[in-house]
């Protein structure tokens, strides 16, 4: 009897803690959403119940998506989509090739593990350390403020992680299928494209989405390599900061636009995300 009561008390505590933590986590997003539907006159008010406390207005969305700044926003969204999807595609090919090489072949001079951890070590260095030489390289190549510059930077930013995770996926794949194919006269290249790659497709897609999210969210490379034509959503958000201060309604609307895609993708791949973020140290 006493034991049962203790267990129930534990569950009550658990739910309270969970509830508080959920409110703490969601509140900034909620507030951003509410603020994006307030008129400039009401942007500083504490009202948070639409219709009951304030009349929702689509003013912010009209500015951000309409005539005034719509072109800029659409350009930013398009740049973000283009940069994230193309750089992740490049990462995926380079990463899965290298990952396959490191799981299915043995390298003699340097051990496979050494190569793999060297590749991963590129993930660790601070982006600012390469931002300056990148800027100079792109300036020399006359590529500043072009899509290739940002795509190249994001590719090198995501490639180590993708390679590392692909090693993990190929390792989980039974080698026997490929071996049988090789005996049947299939070339190693065919074995990769016809068997290993399709079989690890779920992993490949998960890695692609993870890289897409990282690239979408990346800020430092974009702000140092582009100033006008290739601005992505994060840089457009940063651009709303003026000497007059912050227009809450505008920042909210733009932030929501920038937050929605990666968050939706993360929700779809939630099981994989922790594994990706911990570099495969935790497998769910």
């Amino acid at each position: 009897m006493r034991h049962k009561r203790k267990v129930e008390a534990f569950f009550v505590v658990a739910w309270i803690v969970l509830g508080l933590f959920s409110v703490w986590t969601v509140f900034p997003f909620f507030w951003g959403a509410v603020t994006s539907f307030k008129s400039p006159g009401e942007q500083y008010s504490t009202a948070f119940l639409p219709f009951a406390q304030f009349q929702p207005s689509t003013y912010a969305w009209q500015v951000v998506l309409g005539q005034a700044e719509g072109e800029r926003t659409r350009q930013g969204l398009w740049n973000s989509v283009l940069i994230s999807s193309l750089s992740s595609l490049l990462v995926l090919f380079l990463g899965s090739f290298a990952g396959y090489a490191l799981t299915r072949f043995r390298f003699r001079r340097w051990k496979n593990k050494d190569i793999a951890s060297w590749i991963l070590s590129n993930r660790m260095f601070p982006p600012i350390a390469v931002a300056i030489p990148f800027f100079l390289i792109m300036r020399t190549l006359k590529l500043l403020d072009t899509l290739p510059a940002v795509i190249m930077a994001h590719t090198v930013y995501n490639l180590p992680l993708a390679t590392w995770l692909m090693i993990d996926f190929f390792r989980e794949l039974p080698e026997e299928v490929e071996e049988a194919a090789l005996i049947d006269g299939c070339s190693p290249v065919q074995a990769f494209f016809r068997i290993a790659f399709p079989l690890s497709l779920p992993g490949v897609i998960a890695v692609y989405i993870l890289c897409f999210i990282f690239s979408w969210n990346e800020f430092l490379f974009v702000i140092t390599l582009s100033y006008r034509k290739t601005m992505t959503m994060p840089v457009i958000i940063a651009g709303t900061l003026t000497v007059r201060g912050l227009d809450f309604w505008k920042v909210s609307a733009l932030s929501l636009l920038a937050i929605a895609p990666p968050v939706i993708l993360a929700a779809l791949t939630s099981r994989f995300l922790i594994r990706g973020l911990t570099l495969g140290a935790i497998k769910e």
Partner: peptide, 14 residues
């Protein structure tokens, strides 16, 4: 997962 998946710069401005 939401806070981790959102762009850090958007988080900062929020």
């Amino acid at each position: 997962l939401l806070p981790m998946a959102a762009p850090p710069i958007a988080v900062a401005f929020m």
